[in-house]
């Protein structure tokens, strides 16, 4: 397999990323939250959100049984409401990939995403990162969520970051690669744009905002900047790249705002879990509560929904 997609240079040229109009982004981002969404649209949107969730557990306290439980939940979100979709994937640490594969079975609709490359800090040698990736894929992961080396990026070593992503992409084989930029550590929207361009050009199938491990995670403005990078790439090459905001999206209303933004920025083709995902752990339950509210007409209580 080729190390990066066609039509792209083997090196990243910083001047190829346009500067970001921060005020413009903030204003545009605020607009997405003002759409009026009616009940039927909301119901369809909520189902779509559920189907786009990467149900995630990335804790030091994860146990095999917690992962099994997560896998069960991904397929049985709330059995008393018929017709609910499964989540898009479960997202776990590499050591739990085998367990998740056994729990879900070999042909599950639910993908297994595994974080890799010394998540969440990214501080490891390239060799270690590649080994971790190969192992996760070998154990049955369909998707790899890698973190970029923010230290190298911030010290201006863009080509290191580029080469590293390209190398991990090669190690992924058939698995799709999501590149976590950890935007909360990048400092400016210009840097977010630059990192997005690097990740896209180096062959990432998805770009993802955050690890969820630091306070500043996915926000609408940051996601918008990344979506614009995807759009520019699409206009230039015709290739689609996926987007995954992660961390801090726990309310269904906010998730619907994200869908509005994706539709208005990239178009309806991206409203599919092949191209758009939410990285979240508690979002699913909030969406389920809203669905139950729409079905029954009564406001719901968290205690009637499964915890994990």
């Amino acid at each position: 397999m080729k190390s990066h997609t066609k039509n792209t240079p083997a090196r990243y040229i910083p001047s190829s990323s346009p500067p970001v109009d921060q005020v413009g982004i903030a204003e545009r981002a605020a607009r997405f939250t003002t759409r009026s969404i009616k009940d039927t649209t909301k119901r369809a949107g909520l189902n779509m959100v559920l189907n786009m969730i990467d149900l995630t557990t990335l804790e030091g306290a994860d146990t095999p049984n917690k992962v099994r439980q997560l896998c069960y939940k991904s397929c049985h979100l709330h059995d008393s409401i018929p017709g609910l979709p499964t989540t898009a994937a479960v997202c776990v640490y590499p050591t739990f990939v085998k367990i998740a594969r056994t729990a879900l079975g070999p042909h599950s609709k639910v993908n297994i995403a595994s974080v890799a490359t010394a998540f969440p800090s990214g501080h490891a040698t390239l060799k270690q990162k590649l080994e971790e990736t190969t192992q996760a894929v070998g154990d049955g992961a369909d998707e790899i969520d890698m973190v970029i080396s923010r230290g190298k990026f911030l010290s201006g070593d863009y080509n290191y970051v580029f080469d590293e992503i390209a190398a991990v992409k090669e190690a992924c084989g058939k698995a799709r690669l999501k590149v976590i930029l950890e935007t909360g550590e990048l400092g400016t929207l210009d840097n977010v744009r630059r990192a997005s361009d690097i990740a896209i050009h180096a062959g990432g199938d998805f770009i993802k905002t955050s690890t969820g491990k630091i306070a500043s995670a996915a926000t609408i403005p940051v996601t918008l900047v990344m979506l614009l990078a995807i759009r520019d790439h699409y206009f230039k090459t015709g290739e689609m790249v996926g987007m995954k905001p992660a961390g801090g999206i726990s309310k269904s209303k906010l998730a619907l705002h994200y869908l509005v933004m994706v539709k208005e920025t990239l178009g309806p083709e991206w409203l599919d879990n092949r191209w758009f995902r939410f990285g979240a752990s508690s979002l699913a339950n909030d969406v389920l509560m809203q669905v139950a509210k729409l079905e029954s007409g009564h406001y719901q209580a968290a205690q009637y929904f499964s915890k994990d």
């Binding site: 007409g297 009564h298 406001y299 719901q300 209580a301 968290a302 205690q303 009637y304």
Partner: peptide, 8 residues
Amino acid sequence: PIIGSHMD
């Protein structure tokens, strides 16, 4: 009525 049927 909304109070009565609220689950929480």
